[in-house]
């Protein structure tokens, strides 16, 4: 780890000002991703701003009928919060499918959005990596790429610069629920729909998301409808706990009188951001939920997917996972 100075932020504005003043500064929340990357010399901030004392630690109801998750609420406190377990069980389940109990006690909701890829080459400073060192090349395309992306990898020039995935489970559920990220920065406050928060790699894979330098995430807003009756988070991985997803599916259905009124399907482990296709979800409306329609959507969602050798199995795996998750969501007995 490189040397750095440390300061505790006492207010939101002060934190933003301090962060903007130094290009090499970083916010630290739970520390579970940043310190890991600093130990590997992948992240080398020269100044850490500890934001844990900022008043962003509560979960509150908002006017829209939804719920606001403070950026510094821990993943554990979010997953076990009564409003979340009752109204947004999909989110609760996705969070609890990730990391370990210890890590979830440390990890914050804001930090979870900002966590970086687990691509082995990104972590290994001895190898080329366009995300870590723009222009150096991508070691994964021709290397070990079992955990890598199969969708959205091509840049506009039809080249591939990075096949990293975003590793979060929580964000897959947030994408399905159409959460909104609230941020504040040197230029004021703004909101970013979760679907637009993370980017595709294109030819600038060093940028994970659209947060601007100096901006601070203050909260994540959940819309009023949390799909509490028909939902499933299916996570497939190399061991049954404490492992990142190879493929995950957040499925949420609104079923009335035997017909689908609204469907959400978000995929994790397959792309640089949680993957959704609202156009294909829409083909499920007014249909009776059954394996045939689910299989059609699953096949269509993976159309154009490309494997890079070790990860090619993910294409078929993702299709099967989508069908299974949608069937699980359909058959889940209504919450009482």
């Amino acid at each position: 780890m490189n040397s750095f100075t440390y300061a505790r932020a006492s207010g939101i504005t002060q934190a933003v000002v301090e962060r903007s003043a130094k290009t090499d500064a970083a916010f630290i929340a739970g520390g579970t991703n940043l310190l890991d990357l600093m130990k590997e010399n992948v992240a080398r901030p020269t100044h850490l701003i500890d934001i844990n004392h900022l008043p962003l630690t509560t979960i509150t109801s908002i006017e829209s009928g939804g719920l606001r998750l403070g950026a510094l609420v821990t993943n554990a406190d979010t997953a076990y919060h009564q409003q979340v377990t009752q109204r947004y069980p999909l989110l609760s389940q996705a969070i609890l499918a990730g990391a370990s109990a210890q890590l979830r006690n440390m990890a914050t909701d804001g930090g979870n959005l900002m966590q970086r890829t687990r691509c082995y080459y990104f972590y290994d400073t001895a190898t080329p990596c366009n995300k870590r060192e723009p222009g150096s090349g991508c070691s994964a395309i021709t290397g070990f790429n079992r955990i890598h992306a199969i969708l959205g990898t091509y840049a506009q020039d039809q080249q591939v610069y990075c096949i990293a995935t975003h590793p979060s489970d929580m964000c897959v559920a947030l994408a399905a629920l159409e959460a909104v990220v609230r941020v504040t920065g040197p230029d004021g406050d703004r909101t970013i729909p979760l679907a637009e928060f993370h980017r595709l790699p294109g030819d600038t894979p060093h940028l994970d998301n659209v947060l601007q330098d100096g901006e601070l995430i203050t909260a994540i807003d959940l819309p009023a409808d949390g799909f509490p009756d028909h939902y499933a988070y299916l996570k497939l991985r190399d061991r049954s706990s404490y492992a990142f997803a190879l493929v995950s599916v957040a499925a949420a259905l609104d079923i009335q009188d035997g017909q689908i009124k609204d469907a959400r399907i978000a995929l994790g482990g397959v792309a640089h951001r949680p993957w959704r296709r609202p156009d294909l979800e829409a083909t499920l409306t007014e249909k009776a939920p059954n394996k045939t329609v689910f299989q059609y959507v699953a096949d269509a969602m993976l159309e154009g997917a490309q494997g890079f050798g070790h990860n090619t199995f993910k294409i078929e795996l993702a299709k099967r996972a989508i069908v299974r998750a949608l069937l699980q969501a359909t058959n889940r007995p209504s919450a009482v």
């Binding site: 440390y6 630290i28 739970g30 520390g31 579970t32 310190l35 890991d36 850490l48 500890d50 844990n52 554990a76 109990a101 210890q102 890590l103 006690n105 440390m106």
Partner: peptide, 12 residues
């Protein structure tokens, strides 16, 4: 609450 002591700074 249980945490991993390796991923937090003493100063925090």
């Amino acid at each position: 609450k249980r945490i991993n002591a390796c991923l937090t700074l003493a100063i925090m």
